[in-house]
Design a protein around this nucleic acid. Sequence first.
DNA 1: CGGACCGATTGATATCACTATTGGTGGCGG
DNA 2: CCGCCACCAATAGTGATATCAATCGGTCCG
Lengths: 242, 242
Amino acid sequence: MGTDHRTLHNRVLAVLGPAIAAGEYSTGHTFTLQGLEEDFGVSRTVAREAVRVLESMRLVVSRPRTGIRVRPMRDWSIFDPQLIRWRLAGSGRMEQLRSLNELRAAVEPGAAALAAVRGDAQARAHLVVVADEMVRTGRAGDLDTFLELDIAFHRHILELSENEMLMGLAQVVSEVLVGRTSYDLMPRHPRPEALRLHKAVAQAIRDGLPDVAEAAMRAIVTEVVEALEDDPTRADEDDVPA
Amino acid sequence: MGTDHRTLHNRVLAVLGPAIAAGEYSTGHTFTLQGLEEDFGVSRTVAREAVRVLESMRLVVSRPRTGIRVRPMRDWSIFDPQLIRWRLAGSGRMEQLRSLNELRAAVEPGAAALAAVRGDAQARAHLVVVADEMVRTGRAGDLDTFLELDIAFHRHILELSENEMLMGLAQVVSEVLVGRTSYDLMPRHPRPEALRLHKAVAQAIRDGLPDVAEAAMRAIVTEVVEALEDDPTRADEDDVPA
DNA sequence: CGGACCGATTGATATCACTATTGGTGGCGG
DNA sequence: CCGCCACCAATAGTGATATCAATCGGTCCG
């Protein structure tokens, strides 16, 4: 799930990235390579590679004489799944989740409608299988498996849309779902209503009913957005599994 | 506008990135650092930094003994503006533009609606100024200035939505607009209808009319999608400016 | 006020030692 | 004779260090 920590520069990034993403260094703050070397106890090579990655995410710019400068947040590549993960780890988590879910609310209903008319029949039918699995594991309270299925479900729909950009959002959606679960923002049992809606989306897509699929998906994502706005720290009640 | 070519690793990326993005190396193809050093005549450090960037974009994975392996396209961070630019430079340009515009069609109308109710009055009013400028330079046939204004216009709306993720799409939209212009997919004079619609969006947002803004924006982006589908190689007629 | 200079800092290269992965190889057992 | 397992060695990436080049910001002097 997490980033590959085998390499040193990734371990530097695992600290530096979240720190910058969380706004601990204000826009315009400058690092020096030497400072990073000393702070993290790594060689110049490693420090530079870490900076290169941050630079490619547009979090910083590196220039001679000036050092490594934190860029304004508006420049960041905020669709980068790595950056999303970093930000979800920080204090602005709720705000970040809200933004992401608003994006999902804007995009996923349309994607569901496309999926109902574009995918091939077999792939669309498979969605119902996944939805059924979700219902089963959801009732059983197996959150880890449920998460996997939830990700697979939404990814599958985005892929059925046959639009590259929507398919690309699958990574973003995946991070949202993982983040929501790993930070205990999911109820211990998914809401029955949510399970029903997932099943409804799957069936509508299988049956080639774009309007129904869109409406049901819209219900899913708007429910999520509202749940976050209602009670940011605790999403739902429900009793504890065995 | 383009990438900073001052550094060597960026020059390597400027060749290697588009090549991978264009699919010239099939999934699973492996490079070696040594091979890259020799092919580009650069040192190991530079080759490694380039690989780090490709890795952070999820185009490749680098592992000992295996080499640097091209990942399947589904894994790529296709919202990375750099990657978008690389792909727009390649042979799949039309397909890429189509996907991007479908994304815009999904997102920008909703963003316009949000902008009409969220932004502060002064910022919303400024949009009308930009739209007027667009009409003027559009009629004059000054495509470069028009491009800048067009980018500013759409970015401004996305920023008024006060949603980080939508604001992040401004970079994507910017790449689309730049790409469409620099690859001569824009008519020499923007369509009068398009100009009118931009003005309508601006006024609706200024006047706090989300439904009107959404409808007008929808008209803009669907027109763009359809124009691409009608005639992929030539977007419009119109006579040559003075 | 403007231009030349200085030094701090990144950019680039070369080289060395280390480590992880893999694929072969040989031995043992079924 | 075939298959499985452990071990070994080749291969490539990983990390550290030293050194020089290029850049640019600020300062000092004319």
